[in-house]
Amino acid sequence: MMSLYRLPPLPTIREIIKLYNLRAEKQLSQNFLLDLKLTDKIVRKAGNLQNAHVCEVGPGPGGITRAILNSGAEELLVVEKDTRFLPGLKLLNEASMGKVRIVHGDILTYRMDKAFPRHLQKAWSDDPPNVHIIGNLPFNVSTPLIIKWLEEMANRTGPFVYGRTRMTLTFQHEVAERLTAPTSSKQRSRLSIMAQYLCQVKHCFSIPGRAFVPKPEVDVGVVHFSPLIEPKIDQPFKLVEKVVRNVFQFRRKYCYKGISMLFPEEQRTKLTEQILTSADVEPTLRPSALTMKHFQGLCNAYREMCEQDPHLFSYNFREELHQKKVKRNQDTQKTPQITLS
């Protein structure tokens, strides 16, 4: 149920932009969303925010900020890197009678584990806490940020010290499709597995690029993340990430090609056959055709193999290729040049 609280009359977002002479910076991937019907719709997809504690990432001129405040949130923490937006956010803080806490900083380094009062913490197996993350993310930070948050979700650190904190975020349409892509779809990728093994991921709706100022070349997808009580793969995040990354690095080839690169060359054939058999994975499946159960089997088998050979996890075939290339160059330089006199 929506709160009866509404912000007092304020300048429009366009007027705020004009008042403070704000321009979206291309190098920061900034795109302003001015349509308040759309900002309201994004906030509604986050769920009931009555008395909630919310962190908004990159509020910019404050369109989504207003929608969050109008939804009845008890406290709104905004993390904004760009100093030009701070005066407009201070205006919203005054209008909301001090509900906005402004942090001038980078969300990639901000300590989210200290963002909210400890009394909001809930056990992981309980219902989610009344804590939400919402943001219209700049394109250049969206993928590294969601990977960082997924790792913190797996480790129950960062914003997940409070429990199963939910997130509602915007991404380039293509990234939103990857995050939610089902098995065998063309968009199925590393990002699909990393998100879906930890969360229920829902592509809520798309926003046409023309709704933003300046208009980006792509449309935008709004994605909602609800952390699962039990992850679909019960292995450390770094191990899952390594297996998934290797599988998808040759996405157009059969899956055994990427899986084989988990192992040093001299053991490659034997260990690849061993992991495929143990995980019950058909070697000629394409990476996109592997189910979550297949990835669970591969990660479990790889963990056992790493326990038998502790050096295996640190093996990186790209590093091996680089060392071979360096050695070839050194050998070439050592070869005496034969000249005809």
Rank of each mutant, 00 (worst) to 15 (best):
M1P: 11
L10C: 05
T12R: 11
L19S: 14
N21T: 10
R23G: 05
L28P: 04
N31C: 09
L34K: 00
L38D: 00
L38N: 07
I42M: 07
K45V: 09
K45R: 15
H53M: 10
I64D: 01
L69W: 11
N70R: 01
G72N: 07
R84M: 01
L89K: 01
G98E: 05
R101E: 08
G105L: 09
K114I: 00
A115Q: 06
S125K: 14
I134Q: 06
F139E: 05
I146C: 03
I147H: 07
I147F: 15
M153G: 11
F160S: 08
V161F: 00
F171R: 08
H173L: 12
K186I: 02
K186G: 08
R190G: 02
Q200G: 05
S206Y: 03
G209I: 09
A211M: 12
D219Q: 10
V223K: 07
N246H: 15
F248H: 00
R251K: 15
R251C: 07
R251V: 03
R252Y: 02
Y254S: 12
C255A: 14
K257N: 15
G258K: 07
I259N: 03
M261L: 15
L262C: 03
E266H: 14
Q274V: 04
S278P: 03
L285Y: 02
G297F: 01
L298Q: 06
M305Y: 06
F313T: 00
Q333G: 10
I338D: 07
I338M: 11
